Each structure stands twice: as C-alpha cells, then as structure tokens.
Computed example of a mutant assay.
Amino acid sequence: MSFHEVRFPADLSFGSVGGPERRTDIVTLTSGHEERNTPWAHSRRRYDAGLGLRSLDDVEALVAFFEARRGQLYGFRWKDWSDYKSCAPSKQISGTDQVIARGDGVTKSFPLIKTYRSGLHSYARPVTKPVKGSVLAAVQDVEMREGVHFTTDVETGILTFVEAPMKGLEVSAGFEFDVPVRFDTDRINVSVASFRAGQVPDVPVVEVRV
C-alpha cells in the first residue's frame, strides 16, 4: 500500500471536524420489524482538513502537503485531537491504560488496541500508527521499559517483548496514536478573496485500512 509515514501538520488538523462512521444495512420486514447487519468490522473516520485553516500561510502549507502526497495517491498520518490517546484526554498515559492480551508463555508480539466501552458492550479498535516514543507497556501492572523489555513497530502498531509474558498474565499498554488517512479528493479549490472573508476550502480526508 502507498503510505507516507508523515503526519499532517497537527496545528492545521486542530479545529477540523470529523469522527467515526459506520455502515449498517437495514431491511424492513412486512411486519414492520427491522433486520440490521453490517459488512464492516471496524468504523471508518472522516475529517475536513479545511476547517483547521486560519491564514493564507496555512493554505500554503496545506497545498504543499497535498502536492507531496499527490492528492489521493499516498496515505499519511492524521492527529485526531478528539481521540488520540489510550486514556481520557484529561489524563496522563500509563502502561495500564489498555489491556491488549493475556500472556501464554510463548507469544511475544501483540497488536495495540483501544477498547471503547458503554454499558455491557465494547468495541476493540486496532491501533496501527502509534506515535514514536509515546508507548508504555506493563505486564500484570508491572511497568516495562521500551528498548529494554519491549520494542514497538510504529508503522504497524505491533508491540514485541524480549521475553514472552507468562501464561495468564495481563499485558497492557498506553500510547498516543495517529489515524492512517488519505485525501478524499484530487482537487483543492482556494479563493484568496473568500478565504479572507472567513470561508475555507473543503478538504475531505478519509481513514484507510493498513
């Protein structure tokens, strides 16, 4: 897959609008009841990068980034300011934020996930683009040291321990992460006059599977 390991300028994504979307197929039966199903195991996020622009210098930075990605051709990292931590936005990351697995005494590598809970239900979101240097890990609440006890592949979100966690022990992690995205357009329309009047270009961005 064509992907550039570079983040869209975080100061430009701040102020953008977006979030997760789901695809649900709904069939209404003759009785009036509904049957609902989804072909998607995971949600997909969409954003509008244009809403984070505040000056003509911002527009120039956007155009440069867009051109370097060749429009929709290459994916890139995006910081979702509303959801970029393994913990609540107001808290500090810790190695016990997210339970990602239980040891079996053999497996050394584990994919990072973030679990969303509401009531009795939950959803485990794969995290494939952790931020370099932000990952913390623990085994049964005992903090591990990156580079000593484990390593992280920031391009895939795979955490690998030097020694496999013992069977039954809880493996957890904390991290910041980006969303893998691409531009959802091959064209950007900018009017200098309208931008100075308070209007910004529509620059759609969509999450990609990696």
Rank of each mutant, 00 (worst) to 15 (best):
T151P: 02
V27Q: 14
G52S: 03
V142L: 09
A64I: 02
F3G: 08
V127M: 07
V106E: 09
T96K: 11
L159F: 06
V27W: 11
H149N: 15
A68T: 12
W81H: 15
R117F: 00
E5N: 15
F183C: 01
V63I: 15
V162T: 12
F195S: 08
R36W: 03
L112P: 12
S118I: 11
L120M: 14
T185K: 04
F65L: 08
H4M: 11
V131P: 07
V63W: 06
T38K: 05
G157D: 10
V200T: 13
S109N: 06
A64P: 06
S94D: 04
L56Y: 10
Y116T: 01
F183Y: 10
L136A: 12
G147P: 12
R182S: 10
G147W: 04
V27M: 07
L56V: 08
F14P: 00
K132D: 13
R209A: 11
P201L: 03
D141W: 08
I26E: 11
V17I: 10
A41G: 12
A197K: 14
V106N: 11
G32Q: 01
F65M: 04
T30N: 15
V139I: 14
G119R: 10
R7Q: 14
R125V: 01
A197W: 01
D186I: 01
K91H: 13
R145A: 13
G15S: 05
T38R: 06
R117N: 04
L112Q: 03
P204S: 03
P111I: 06
F177S: 02
Q72D: 05
F161C: 02
S86Y: 05
E163W: 05
A10F: 04
G168P: 12
R22C: 00
D141C: 01
D184E: 14
L53E: 01
K129Q: 10
L12S: 03
R45F: 04
A88K: 15
A61C: 09
V205P: 01
V162D: 01
H42E: 03
T24H: 02
K108T: 13
R209N: 08
K108C: 02
A137S: 14
L112H: 07
E60N: 14
